[in-house]
Simulated assay, not measured.
Amino acid sequence: MKQEFLVPDMTCGHCVKMITDTIHEFSPNAVVNADPKTHWLTVEANDTDPQTIIMKLQVAGYSPQQV
């Protein structure tokens, strides 16, 4: 399932790595595409839901919004 988010505080490559690592901790097979220039995050995963992604990223210090 493809899920899309806007993450306004994702601004650099370090943010992309942190977000990707956070998602892979609970969904190891997820395909994560993150663009710090547009703040756009796409996650393709069949084993998680958008609320889990939002919650885990908030714990990591980010402010994702599902779109």
Rank of each mutant, 00 (worst) to 15 (best):
P36I: 04
K56T: 03
D21S: 14
A45R: 03
Q3C: 03
M10T: 05
V31T: 15
F5C: 11
L41N: 11
E4V: 04
G13N: 13
T48R: 12
Q65K: 13
T38K: 07
L57G: 13
D9W: 02
Q66K: 06
A60L: 04
D35Y: 13
N46R: 09
I19M: 08
I54W: 01
L6P: 00
A30L: 07
Q65G: 01
Q51A: 03
M10W: 01
N33G: 06
E44M: 04
P28I: 10
V67R: 11
M18H: 07
K17V: 00
G13Q: 09
E25L: 06
G13F: 02
D49Y: 06
C15N: 00
T20C: 06
N46W: 07
D49A: 12
K37T: 13
Q65M: 11
V7K: 04
T42Y: 00
I19S: 08
T42V: 15
K2S: 10
T52D: 07
I19L: 11
E4L: 02
M18L: 11
A30T: 11
D47T: 10
W40E: 15
V43F: 01
S27V: 10
G61A: 09
D21H: 05
P36H: 15
V59G: 01
Q58V: 14
Q3W: 00
M55W: 00
Y62W: 00
Q3R: 03
M18A: 10
L6Y: 07
W40A: 15
C15G: 04
Q3I: 02
T52G: 03
V59N: 09
L6W: 01
P64Q: 08
E25T: 09
Q65S: 12
E25S: 13
T11N: 13
H39Y: 12
P50L: 00
H14I: 04
P50D: 03
Q51T: 01
T20P: 01
M1T: 05
K37L: 15
V59P: 05
Q51D: 13
I19Q: 10
C12R: 05
I23N: 08
Q65R: 09
I19A: 11
V67S: 13
P28E: 12
M1Q: 05
G13A: 08
D47S: 07
A60G: 02
F5Q: 08
S27N: 05
H39F: 10
L57K: 08
E25W: 01
Y62G: 06
V7H: 06
P28W: 04
V16N: 06
C12I: 03
V31S: 15
Q51H: 03
I23D: 05
S63V: 09
I23Y: 01
C12P: 09
D47W: 03
V32C: 14
C12W: 05
A30S: 14
H14N: 10
V67Y: 11
V31C: 15
H14F: 00
L41D: 12
L6M: 09
V7E: 08
P8L: 02
V32H: 09
M18T: 10
I53E: 03
E44S: 10
A60P: 00
H14P: 05
S63C: 08
T20I: 03
V32L: 12
V31P: 10
H39Q: 14
V16K: 12
